[in-house]
Simulated assay, not measured.
Amino acid sequence: MRYFLTTTVIGAAFIALLLPSISLAQTHLIKNLAAGKKQTLVVYGTSLSAAEGGQAWVKAVSDAINNKYQQNLTVYNAARSAMWSTWGVQHLEDSVISKKPDAVLMEFSMNDAFLDYKTSVALARLNLNYMIDRIKLFNPKCEVILQVMNIPINVHAQQRPHLLQYYNMYRQVAKQRGLLLIDHYNNWKKILNRGTAEYLKYVPDGIHPDENGAREIVAPLVLKKLTGK
C-alpha cells in the first residue's frame, strides 16, 4: 500500500509538471519571433479568410502578434473567395511558395464540401496532402497549420450536406501528420445552440462571420493556438 501511494504521488507530480508545458506550448512561428527572428505567415483558403470577416480576423491576429514581437511578422492573406482546394493546388506556387513562408494557415473545407464543385472527400484529402507535401518540400521546417471553420446554415447548409465529413478529414490529416489544428467548430456550435437568431448576429448571411464575429470568435482561438496562451 505504501509503495502504491508513493508511485501515485510521484506520478501525479510528474503529470502536474507536464501540464504547464502542454498548456503553454507555442508554435515554432511564435518561438522564432520571441527569439527576434523575422517570420512570414501565409493565410490560404476561402472567403472565410478572404472576405471582410476573414480580413478582420487575419488583421486582428497579425496586429496582436506584431505588437508583441516588434513588427517582425509579415502576413500575406492569399485566400480567395469562392475557391476550393483544387484552386489551392493550382495556385500554390504563386500564392504561397513564392512568399517563402515560415508558416501556412490553411482552410478549404467549406468550399470543398460545396456540391456544385464536385469535390469528394477523397479528392479534398488528396489536394490537402499534396499542398502539405509541396510546402514541406520547399521548406521542411515550414509550419503547416490547418483550420476547421464555422457552421453554415439555411441554404448554405443545404449546399454542403456532408460538410462534417470534410471537417473530420482535416482533423484526421492533422492528427496523422502531427500538424496543429485550429478547430473553431465547437465555439460556433455553442452559439448556434442558442438559436438561429443568435447565430445570425455573428454570421448575418448564414455562412460568413461578419467583422465583429470574426474578431470575437475566430481571432482569439487562432491567437490562443499560435501562442499557447
Rank of each mutant, 00 (worst) to 15 (best):
V203Q: 08
A79D: 12
R194V: 08
Q147S: 10
I182A: 08
S98Q: 14
P204W: 07
A82N: 07
K224Y: 00
V43G: 02
Y202P: 06
I191Y: 05
G54T: 03
L41M: 06
R80S: 08
Q159D: 07
I135A: 13
A60S: 11
W188R: 05
G11P: 08
L180R: 14
I15V: 11
Y170S: 07
N129E: 15
M149N: 11
D210W: 04
A50I: 05
V75A: 02
Q55L: 00
Q71W: 01
L24H: 15
A157T: 07
Y69N: 14
L179R: 09
T7R: 04
Q26D: 03
I151D: 12
F114D: 08
R215E: 06
F114K: 08
A113G: 03
W87T: 01
W188T: 00
A124M: 05
V43W: 03
T40N: 13
R80W: 04
E216D: 06
K31N: 15
T46M: 09
L221F: 08
S95K: 12
D133F: 08
L200H: 05
K175W: 02
S21C: 01
H156E: 03
Q172M: 04
G45P: 09
A56C: 02
N139R: 11
L29H: 13
N187V: 03
D205G: 04
S49K: 04
Q55A: 00
V96C: 07
K201S: 06
